[in-house]
Nucleic acid binder design. Sequence first.
RNA 1: GGGCGCGUAGCUCAGCGGGAGAGCGCUCGCCUCACACGCGAGAGGUCGCAGGUUCAAAACCUGCCGCGCCCACCA
Length: 849
Amino acid sequence: MAVPEKPSLDGLEAKWDEWWEAAGTYRFDRTKTREEIFAIDTPPPTASGNLHMGHVCSYTHTDLVARFRRMRGKTLFYPMGWDDNGLPTERRVQNYFGVWCDPSLPHDPNFDVDALDRPDDRPVPVPRPNFIDLCERLTAEDEKAFEHLFRMLGLSVDWTQTYTTIDAHSRRASQRAFLRLLDRGLAYQEEAPTMWDVDFQTAVAQAEIEDKEVDGAYHRIRFDLADGSGSLEIETSRPELIPACVALVVNPSDGRFAPMVGRVAVTPLFGAEVPVVAHELADPERGTGVAMICTFGDLTDVTWWRELRLPARVVVQRDGTIAPSRWGEPGWESRDVQAARAAHSELAGRPAKRARRGIAELLAESGHLLGEPQRVRHVVKYYERGERPLEVVSSRQWFVKTIELRDRLLERGRELRWHPEHMGARYASWVEGLNGDWCISRQRFFGVPFPVWYPVGQDGSPDRGRPILPAETRLPVDPSTDVPEGYTAGQRGLPGGFVGDPDIMDTWATSSLTPQIASGWEEDPDLFARVFPMDLRPQSHDIIRTWLFYTVLKAELEHGRLPWTDAAISGWILDPDRKKMSKSKGNVVTPIEFLEQHGADAVRYWAASARLGIDVAFKEEQIRIGRRLAIKILNASRFVLSFEAPEGEVSDPLDRSLLAALAGVVEQATAAFEDYEHARALDVIERFFWGFTDDYLELVKGRAYGSHGPEAAGSAIAALRLALSVLLRLFAPFLPYVTEEVWSWWRQGSIHRSAWPTPDELAEASAGGDPIVHQVAAWVLGEVRKAKALAKRSLRTEVERVVVHDTEERLKVLRGVERDVREAGTVAELVHAQAEEPSVEVVLGSQDG
RNA sequence: GGGCGCGUAGCUCAGCGGGAGAGCGCUCGCCUCACACGCGAGAGGUCGCAGGUUCAAAACCUGCCGCGCCCACCA
């Protein structure tokens, strides 16, 4: 036993992190069976980003669960991942090395980025495999910094189980999953209108789209009927799409326009004849009740176009500009081709927004624009990282079937245990609102390529209908540099040869496999059987529709089951003004500073006091409170352990009372942890602990020092030590450093591998103990202290006499603890008086300075 | 428009059918042999509003107001 004279929190992080690493305290034990293992699907943080207090908070939440389960006897499968696959890394590598990824270049085995030929300042094109190497190299540095922070924070991760989302293993898993879906007809490619970002020039999925409210204007426009018998009016915020108009639509039940259905209107300026059609989705309440159908203004247009079998006249190009005029060609017939060309030439080449102003002028001149455009604020779809509104563009993309699985996915959502429970509603509303299959192809460069080649026909064009696929054993492949079976490299791109699919997968196509990637799916069947499906997915609520949803989807498609049983959803950390913390607002504080300044336990205390699922405002004050608690544990422990372990056992009613109350705390804390209510567990434990130090310790101090003989002292000391052992273990998940430090003063091994306390281990020592005893004693002591404080006297002041008025029953209880109360309150005489209403009279002694 | 969550002391929040609570902050006092990085005490609230259920409502029901988020709409 070595209790330091002046215990301190300083340096505990470095000391114990090293010790735990050396001792393998958190190492996974793969000899255990599935039932003995608790497996966590740790969120891989984005490399090339920054870790902020939100990460600290949510990763701590997960660690609390891990440590609790470990002490409950489970072996933890608690890996870490780094998400280095995606746009952030791509951009960072481009800027850092001054390169860009060109998948058309062949892999260069002797590539050396420092020896690149740089004739000017322009970025240098780099083959994809080499670009991926650069990504791995650069992100390795981030990952080191992240690991340092997480270690310092005390995450009980098994660092030997680390993976990254761009490494060969992850690419293999992503490609294997894709090939299997393809084989089963669950993945397919199709030329179809999809949401398209005109700046990044890639297709995007519904999950990556966000709404933004922007300025716009409604233009009221007149369409004349072809036979000259009248006209219809529509309202649109996108008049530049008039050349793409292929029909006008009204609701079939709308009596106002019933006679119009089936007739033909003429588009203003362009003179194209378009039918007036009817469809349920046309809303009689909106605008004029007549809408123009364009190819394509939004997804409703796509639905109309598809269901009503309308022709396509596409005018918006992939870069967001208006295409050149094609009036007069087949499908672009006009009553006045010259006029159509003239009008179109005013728009061609312009970005949509500028074309809009141009056409508004033309419409005003021609008299088709009715009144002034009406300025409005309206909602437009944006790519989450994009700067311009999304367009709907027709292109060939890979899709994964989701719509036909909707009911099963909803069922899985109900099967999953959500913490907090109401987060399940977000999943359900997302799944219910899905409007199409998952578009998984991206026209980007850095990411997992599709493991697909196409034969090139004699005309030199690839036959996308007959993909050439690699055997699973060849994965991962990069079709831009690898050659399919039966071909030679020289045949790439030539008639009779082959060509690789140029696209890469949505980053979520890989992230959605984290349970499989971490578990060694198809590569380590033994490990897989022991940890999959996992127990817990921890994550924040903003990525329920992406990470959580796609992971459920992939597991359903591949395994027909949930990838985990429980999902723990963390909230966000807001700055003290309750605004979301973000880099752009410049209110992000670096976690490492807080860890250095206050200590990991203090920071963890702050994180642990936030419940799952709720957004919390960041208060540095809360961290200081955590530090205070850690220091208090240090000092209280030093005091308790300053007494030699006694011979005797717990016999005093006060001591038994305390331990009985503690047994109740153990029960409550355990139940709270089981319910993923770590904040409630901490609250219960902490509340007891402060009562323990403020009241119990003061009450038994004298007795422990031997004021009433060795037997009485022995009872107190035995109770103190037992309580300390239990309390340290209760605190261990929250404050791993200080509890380990104290544990090392008097126990063998790591506290984090010791057993979580149970009421059973307190049963004998607390037998017959009644919590009321401790309460009565603390009450009388409190009244005595109050009298001293009100008299502005020192707590050491002698009290001449205390008269306690109370019921016979409680006075009887008091008798049993009287000596402790008198000693703690320095009371000379204690008198009992029976009464219905409890009260305490305190007579202080003469002034004693 | 639909859904979810939240409105309790100056601040952050717990309580969710029978005493209105904690911590911080504030005020006053205390070097008491574990701790002055501490200890003790005090002040401070028509529990968003209005109805209803109940012997009893901060808690349950209904409606309203306010805040946040998710989904949908984007003619």
